[in-house]
Amino acid sequence: MYGTIAALFSILILCSLMSFSAMAQSTLVVVSDQWMPYYGENGTRDEGYAVDVLRAIFEPKGWTVEYKELPWQRALDDMRNGHADITISKSKEETPDFIFSTQTLGKNAMCFYTNRPDWKFTGPDSLDTVKTGLVQGYGYRDWFLEKVRRKPHLFYSLHGNDAFPRLVSMLKEDRIQALPGNQAVVDYYIQTNQLLDQVFFAGCVDDPEQLYFAISPANPLRSKLLVTAIDKGLATMRVSGQLNYLLIKYNLKHWVPVKADSPSAPNHTQ
């Protein structure tokens, strides 16, 4: 009996190793809308922090990393039907059916920006005095989505791969007066497009979420192997300093130092 159990266990281990070996020449499909500094323009030097991390982890193992820019809702659909492997989770609540890495990629602080220097976000009620833009399909906080549902006349939504830049243009034209977004993403866009004198920081929600790599649930065995590779790869990159280099490249901050003998300690960027 013991010999049979041991043999079955050995077979399972061998199958897992064979599966990972067979995947070693596979293509990893990464999808997202443009969300710099995490996801940028495909094929450029600045494809984004998340894409650079995945290339650093998987390409030395023989994988081909294929990054596709898609509207966010289309990206989620492709993840669910198995046409894509990985994206960044902008909210775990948005995609509870996905499989997540255990290592974080940063904080998803929901902050508000405005074209009116005197307007500040002080809570949900402060949105009653402005018209607010949003991207269809994004995982906003429940209270925010409830407010959109109850007072739709105060909100303007767009969809598509260029929804966020279009909303910023509407903000500049005063067609909307407030726009929520990830602080690192909006700050990067404002600085890159020299909008510091036109788009102003107005405050953040007090409960920032963590960002993770989200893996397609369509193939559980493949996804489990991907999670293992990502978590080990991130731990190695942290200890080697490679991940810190990418943070500096994309102006992401702050990095909590990790001791060389503790590669599995959690990391936090914001």
Rank of each mutant, 00 (worst) to 15 (best):
T114E: 04
L246R: 04
D174P: 00
S10K: 11
D77A: 11
W72L: 12
S157M: 04
R150V: 06
D187Y: 02
F155S: 02
P60I: 10
L14S: 09
F98T: 01
K253N: 15
K253Q: 13
G241A: 08
K61Y: 02
Y49V: 02
I248Y: 06
Q73W: 03
N193L: 07
G241Y: 10
Q73R: 14
G241D: 10
F58D: 03
Y140P: 01
A109F: 01
Y113V: 08
E59G: 02
A202V: 03
R149W: 01
T27A: 06
A84R: 03
T102S: 05
A260T: 10
Y245S: 13
P180H: 09
K92I: 15
P117Q: 12
N161I: 14
Q198V: 05
V168M: 09
E69H: 04
G43T: 07
K120F: 09
W35E: 01
Y140H: 03
G82D: 03
E69N: 15
A178R: 08
N161S: 15
P37D: 11
V205M: 10
L158D: 00
P71V: 05
P180C: 11
H159T: 10
K61A: 15
G139W: 06
K68H: 13
T129D: 13
M23G: 00
M36C: 10
D128Y: 07
L70S: 04
K61E: 07
L195F: 06
V256E: 12
T269V: 11
L76F: 02
L221A: 14
F58T: 02
T228N: 06
H268V: 14
L28N: 00
V168N: 03
F9Y: 09
F144Q: 09
N108D: 10
R238Q: 11
G203F: 05
Y156V: 07
N219A: 11
V256W: 06
G133A: 08
M170P: 01
S126Y: 03
T4Q: 14
Y140V: 06
K61L: 12
Y38D: 05
R238A: 09
C15W: 09
C15D: 06
E146C: 02
L28A: 01
S216I: 03
E173K: 15
D77K: 11
G106L: 02
P180L: 10
S101H: 00
D52C: 00
M110I: 10
I99P: 02
F200V: 04
D207I: 07
L54N: 00
H83P: 00
S216E: 07
L195R: 09
F155I: 05
T27N: 08
D52H: 13
L134W: 15
I11K: 04
G48I: 10
Y245I: 08
E146W: 03
G160P: 04
S157A: 14
Y39E: 08
P263S: 06
N81P: 01
D128R: 12
A84Q: 05
S10H: 05
S157T: 06
L225D: 00
D118G: 01
T64S: 12
R55W: 02
